[in-house]
């Protein structure tokens, strides 16, 4: 009885110590390790929250085989910055009205965070956010990409994103006619 009880306590202590760790370690596809606030990771990523709740977090680095180190570094950086930021009133309010789409505007620091990214890093981050179920980061990155499109002609958009126009001349003519209404000036 005595021995069993002692063993149980030791087990309990180990579990508590594990639960008490306030960071988790993530491992990129190329084997690099990153520490991230457990609270922020669970709050910002549905996938990481599920892994933490399900106990599938590995102390030696939880494998995220889909995500390269550059993208994972940005994910972790975002989570840690988010953990230290105080949400503004604008972020909390989510009332839907006629003139506002149901998206939250990025915070100032979030804008800066994505503004400094290279093109490739931005797109890697969108995919990583999508993979990890990070709604807020997806909001911020998609907002940035949409800003890169706003007010631009199709030619300018192709140039910004290196999109190759693979329509034939006839096809393009046809689709321009179909979409004539979308090219009325306003």
């Amino acid at each position: 009885m005595e021995v069993d009880k002692g063993k149980g306590e030791a087990e309990e202590t180990r579990k508590v110590a594990e639960a008490d760790r306030d960071t988790v370690t993530l491992k990129s596809s190329d084997g690099k390790l990153f520490e991230v606030s457990k609270e922020a990771a669970a709050r910002l990523s549905t996938v990481l929250a599920g892994m933490i709740a399900g106990g599938s977090i590995d102390d030696n680095g939880t494998d995220l085989k889909q995500i390269g180190s550059e993208a994972l570094e940005n994910v972790v950086d975002y989570c840690n910055k988010h953990a230290n930021s105080i949400p503004s009133a604008a972020l909390i309010s989510s009332s839907i009205s006629f003139n506002t789409a149901p998206f939250k505007e990025p915070e100032e620091w979030e804008r800066k965070f994505v503004d400094r990214l290279s093109h490739d890093a931005l797109f890697d981050l969108v995919e990583a956010a999508n993979f990890l179920g990070m709604e807020r980061l997806l909001d911020v990155t998609c907002h940035k990409i949409s800003e890169m499109m706003k007010g631009k002609s199709p030619d300018q958009i192709r140039e910004v994103f290196n999109i190759k126009n693979d329509y034939t001349k006839e096809e393009l003519e046809e689709i321009r006619q179909e979409l004539a209404w979308a090219f009325y000036d306003d």
Partner: peptide
């Protein structure tokens, strides 16, 4: 980098234009 994204991500991006007319103009890209 953008054309290879899945449709739901492209939708997430286009929705943020908040203008279906501008989104429709992407129909001529490729």
């Amino acid at each position: 980098c953008i054309s290879g994204l899945p449709d739901d991500l492209l939708h997430d991006i286009l929705l943020r234009l908040r203008c279906t007319k501008a989104a429709a103009r992407t129909g001529v890209l490729s």
